[in-house]
Design a protein around this nucleic acid. Sequence first.
DNA 1: TTTTAGCACTCAAAACATTCAAGTGCTAAC
DNA 2: GTTAGCACTTGAATGTTTTGAGTGCTAAAA
Lengths: 357, 357
Amino acid sequence: MSGELVYGGPLSERKKRILRSIIEAHIEMGEPIGSKYLVASAQIPFSSATIRNEMAELEEMGYLEQPHTSAGRIPTKLGYRFYVDSLMENYKLTAAEIVTLNNMIQSKIGELDTMIQTASKLVANLTNYTSVAIKASETETVRAFSYMILDEHKFLMVMQMNNESIKTKKVSADCMLDHSGMEALVSLFNKYCVNVVPDDIPYSTILKMESAMGERASLVNPAFKAFYESVASPSASNVKFEGVNKLLEYPEFSNVEQLKRVFSMIENKDDFLDMLSRSDSDKINVFIGDERESRFASNSAFIFRPLTVDGKVIGAIGVFGPSRMDYSKVISTVEYLSQKITGIIEGKALPESDDKR
Amino acid sequence: MSGELVYGGPLSERKKRILRSIIEAHIEMGEPIGSKYLVASAQIPFSSATIRNEMAELEEMGYLEQPHTSAGRIPTKLGYRFYVDSLMENYKLTAAEIVTLNNMIQSKIGELDTMIQTASKLVANLTNYTSVAIKASETETVRAFSYMILDEHKFLMVMQMNNESIKTKKVSADCMLDHSGMEALVSLFNKYCVNVVPDDIPYSTILKMESAMGERASLVNPAFKAFYESVASPSASNVKFEGVNKLLEYPEFSNVEQLKRVFSMIENKDDFLDMLSRSDSDKINVFIGDERESRFASNSAFIFRPLTVDGKVIGAIGVFGPSRMDYSKVISTVEYLSQKITGIIEGKALPESDDKR
DNA sequence: TTTTAGCACTCAAAACATTCAAGTGCTAAC
DNA sequence: GTTAGCACTTGAATGTTTTGAGTGCTAAAA
C-alpha cells in the first residue's frame, strides 16, 4: 500500500527460480516461454506439469501473462520490475569492455556536452539499444561581464557564467566605441545583471541603465539583447539519441503503429525530460512501459542514470529499448559510465588508470 | 547520349497531358493509376481504350511502369524526372504561407545555424515531409587572435575567424599571467597562426614560438591546444533532420526492410553530404531513388537547395521523402526559403517587409 | 487513319477452409 | 507433492476459391 508497486505476495524459492528463468529466456529469445522449454533447456529440475502449475500461480499473482491460450508465458511489467529489483544478477563488464570504455572516455575529457555524447555512443554500441543523452537545462546566470572591442562599431560581450563556462556574443553598436564608454556599460551590467535571469529584470532598470549611460544610451539595448539571448534561450535542455535504427531490429517494434508511437516520443523529447524530472537523482531509474499508461509507449523501457554535480542534476545518460531488454548488462554499463563521468567532472580525476601505466 | 538522362523521344501533347495527369494523381493518392480513373475523374477527353494505348507507349518509352499486369501504371524515375524538368507547374505559395514564413524567419535572424534550422522546421511543417538541414564544414582559419585575462591563471583566447564568427576558449596556465606576457603570446600567434589550419603548422614553428616566449614558454602549449581544438574539430559538417516520423505516414515506407534502409541513411548522414558535394550549387537539386542505384534508398527522393555565400557552399536546406512527392510545392517552398536566407546572410536585408508596414 | 466499344485474359488481394504444432489445464496415478 | 497422459484451444502456416480492377487486342465506328 505504501509504494507504487505492490507485489502479489511472497514467492517461494522455486517460483523465483522459474520466474527468473522465464524472464531471462524471454529476454534472449523474444518469444513466449513454455513449460517444456524450461525443462529441456534450463535448469529447473521438475517436470513440465509442475512448472505449469507454478506458472499458473505466477500468472495469477500478476508476474506473467499469456498472449493467448496456446502460447507460453511472457513477463508482465510487474514481472520485469520484480526481476530488476530482486532477481537479477549484476552483469560484470568484461576487462575488454572496461578498457574500451576507459580509452574512449579518456580521449574525450573536456566539454561536458561531448563527454555525455561520447558516453551515449558507447552505450549504444555496447548494448545494441538506442541510447539517450540528456543535457539538462540550466538556469544559468552571469557572474561577471567584461568586453573586448573588435572594431569601431563592434564589441564582444564576454560573460563568465556561474557554472564556470564562458559565453561570448558579438554586439554591433551605432555609435563609435571607446574604452571609457565600454567600461561604463560593463560596470552597469555588473551592477544590475549579475546572478539574475533577464526575465527578472524590470524594464525600469533598463531605463535606469540607459539614463546612466547618457549620450551612449543606445549601447544598452543591443548589449542587453546579447545578454538575454545568451542566458535565456540557448542552453535549453536537449535530448539526443544514438542508434535509433537499432530499434528496428527488435520484432516488438516492427509494426508501423508501434513505430509511430515510439518515434513521436523520440522526436518530441518532452517525455524523456519529464521522466528525468520525476526520477531519483542518485541511482539508476527504470521506467517500464505498459498498455495501461498512455504516456509511455508500451513494450518499451527506459533506463537511465541522472548525472549530478553538487546535488544538482546536470543531465543523464540512458538507454531506450524494448521492455524485453538485457537489464543486467544495460544497467551495469550505464552505471559504470555515469560514475566515470561524474568522477571526471567533479575533478576526482581518473580513478584507475589501467591504460597509462 | 550527352546528358546522364536520355529521354525516350519526343512526346505528343496528348502523351504529355496523360503522363502529367497520371503522375499528379499518383502523387496525390499513392496508388497505381488506371485508364478508367483518368477518364472518370480527370480531364482527358478520350476513351479509356485510347488512353490505354498511349499508356502502353509511355511504358515502352520508359516513363511509366506496371507493378503487375492487372494494375494501373506508376511513374518511373525517368517519368518523375521528366515531370520535374518539363511538365510540372510552379506551385504558388499562398499569401498566408508567405506571411508565416517571413514572420518565422524574421524572428530568427542571427546565427546561421539557427536560421538554417528554423527554415528546416518550417519546411517540414509546411510540406509534411522530413526536412534536412545541412551545415557545411568549413575549413575555418583565424583572422586575428586576442586575449582577455580572467584571473591569475586563466585567460580567454579570442579568435576572430575569417568567416566573421568568433570563437573563444578558456585556457589555464601554470604561471602567473600578466599583460605583457599575453601581448607577446598573442602577437606570436598573430604572426604564425593566422589564415592557416593548425595541421599545416610544423612543429618547428611551435618550438620557435616557445623560445621567443622565454621564461613564459609554458604558455605556448596550452594556447596552441586551444587554437587547435577550436579550429580543427568542432565545425564538422552536420546534417539535421526534422519530422522524421512523418516518413511513417507514407505507405511506401511502412515495411520494416525499407525503413531500415532509410533510417540507416538518415543516421549515417554521409550520403546526404555526398549528394550535396555533387550538386549544382546555384539551383534546386532533385535526387530520385531507384532500384538500380544501390547508394540511395529506392522509392525515395531528396530535394535540396545549396546555400551559397560568395560562391562558397555553406550549407543546404531540403526535403527527404517518398519519390511520390509533391515536387511542385516542395520545390517552391525550399526555393523561397533558401532565397530568403541567402538574402539575409548577404546583408541585402529584408526585401518585402509586408509585416512591418 | 484515328478512336472506341467490347470482350477475353491476368493476377494480386481478399475471403475462406484446412492442417499443424505448441502449449495449456486437469485428472488420475505414483 | 509430483508427474504422466490426454483432451482441448488457438495462432500460424498453408492451400483454395472468389473477386475485381485493369489490361491488351480486335473489330466496328467515326
